[in-house]
Computed example of a mutant assay.
Amino acid sequence: MLSGMTYRISSVIILSVFVFSCNKQRDKTFPKSELEVSSYASSDHLIEAEELLKVYRQKHLKIIDFRKATAYAEKHIDGALNIWRTDIEDTSYPYKGMMANKEKLEALFRKLGIKNDDLLIVYDDKGSADASRLWWVLKNYNFESVRILNGGLKAWETIEGAMNDKLVPIISSEFILPVMSSLDLLIEKDEMIEMVNSNRKKIILDTRSQDEFTGKRQKNGAARAGRIPNSVLIDWAEAIEYEGTQKFKTYNELEKIYNRLGASKNDLIISYCHSGVRSAHTTFVLTELLGYNNVKNYDGSWVEWSYFKNLPFEQDSITKLN
């Protein structure tokens, strides 16, 4: 019992001292989160509210409130900066939601005063779907210094962490993303078309709701309702305590959910949703928490696929627009 307690105390001390004294980009050198440290495949990009409370005023830490500006203005974690989906979107496409290029992200981070040696703690109030999108975008550009606040704003409120509606003073920075992008977790339209039309072994995973999957519901932004051919459905929200803590479920619970895919940890899994946000969350769950090695998130997702009338799709139901 004493050794376990000593370990837990030590992990918090290491997080406080080591993370914030390091002046190079922090990636795989981060200590693991206390949460499920002996269970999740990796907790390197996850942090508990209790851990954040001990260190959130540290100099080389930036807390990112990934919600709409109106929600941020009402209340946010003390000292948090605000970023929303449109800030990290490439608006040159005729449809919305595509990942911003390197230059736009660098300009955004410079404007917000984010530095290369900062550790970013990202949260939202929707079960970490939006926070996962930012993690996924930055990981594609080889920026690893990101942790998702498990349970988001709800977890912070539960421990009575400091909140206010004040704007944070900002001094612009000289932020630069790594020279080489990885794009290991990205699949784009042309490759997606090739995958759909090939006999290559893969699983196309639709992470939307049942109504979206069947075609009963057509969300705003989509040109039609339905799904990519041969998709299987696992709603992204199954991976979290959606009606409760909004935290990620345990390793064993997640394994049970995604074992329904019948995939090995090395099989190719391509996730998609409406615009690549919920599927980024599933990508985080599969790669980080469960240790799958070959997962791609289709950035354009259904918004892009449905835009092109020549692309095949499947539909089971009469559509309701909304």
Rank of each mutant, 00 (worst) to 15 (best):
residue 1 M to F: 07
residue 11 S to R: 12
residue 14 I to T: 10
residue 16 S to R: 12
residue 17 V to T: 00
residue 24 K to Y: 14
residue 25 Q to I: 11
residue 33 S to R: 00
residue 46 L to Y: 03
residue 48 E to W: 09
residue 51 E to M: 09
residue 56 Y to H: 11
residue 58 Q to S: 11
residue 61 L to Y: 00
residue 70 T to Q: 10
residue 81 L to T: 05
residue 82 N to Q: 11
residue 84 W to H: 09
residue 86 T to V: 05
residue 88 I to V: 15
residue 89 E to R: 05
residue 90 D to K: 08
residue 93 Y to W: 14
residue 94 P to S: 06
residue 101 N to C: 15
residue 103 E to R: 11
residue 111 K to G: 02
residue 115 K to V: 02
residue 117 D to Q: 11
residue 123 Y to W: 12
residue 123 Y to K: 04
residue 125 D to P: 04
residue 128 S to A: 14
residue 130 D to P: 00
residue 130 D to K: 08
residue 135 W to T: 08
residue 135 W to S: 06
residue 142 N to Y: 08
residue 147 R to I: 06
residue 156 W to T: 03
residue 161 G to R: 02
residue 162 A to R: 14
residue 163 M to I: 15
residue 163 M to L: 14
residue 165 D to F: 02
residue 165 D to R: 03
residue 166 K to V: 02
residue 168 V to T: 12
residue 169 P to F: 04
residue 172 S to A: 14
residue 175 F to L: 07
residue 177 L to H: 05
residue 179 V to P: 00
residue 188 E to V: 02
residue 191 E to P: 00
residue 194 E to W: 05
residue 203 I to W: 00
residue 203 I to L: 11
residue 206 D to H: 02
residue 208 R to W: 07
residue 210 Q to W: 00
residue 210 Q to T: 06
residue 213 F to V: 02
residue 216 K to Q: 14
residue 217 R to C: 06
residue 218 Q to G: 01
residue 226 G to Y: 03
residue 227 R to K: 14
residue 231 S to C: 05
residue 237 A to V: 05
residue 239 A to T: 15
residue 242 Y to H: 07
residue 243 E to K: 09
residue 245 T to I: 04
residue 250 T to K: 09
residue 251 Y to S: 13
residue 252 N to V: 03
residue 255 E to R: 14
residue 260 R to G: 07
residue 266 N to M: 03
residue 268 L to R: 01
residue 268 L to K: 10
residue 272 Y to H: 13
residue 289 L to N: 08
residue 293 N to E: 15
residue 304 E to P: 12
residue 305 W to I: 00
residue 305 W to L: 04
residue 305 W to G: 11
residue 308 F to S: 09
residue 313 F to I: 05
residue 314 E to W: 07
residue 314 E to S: 08
residue 315 Q to N: 12
residue 316 D to P: 05
residue 320 K to V: 13
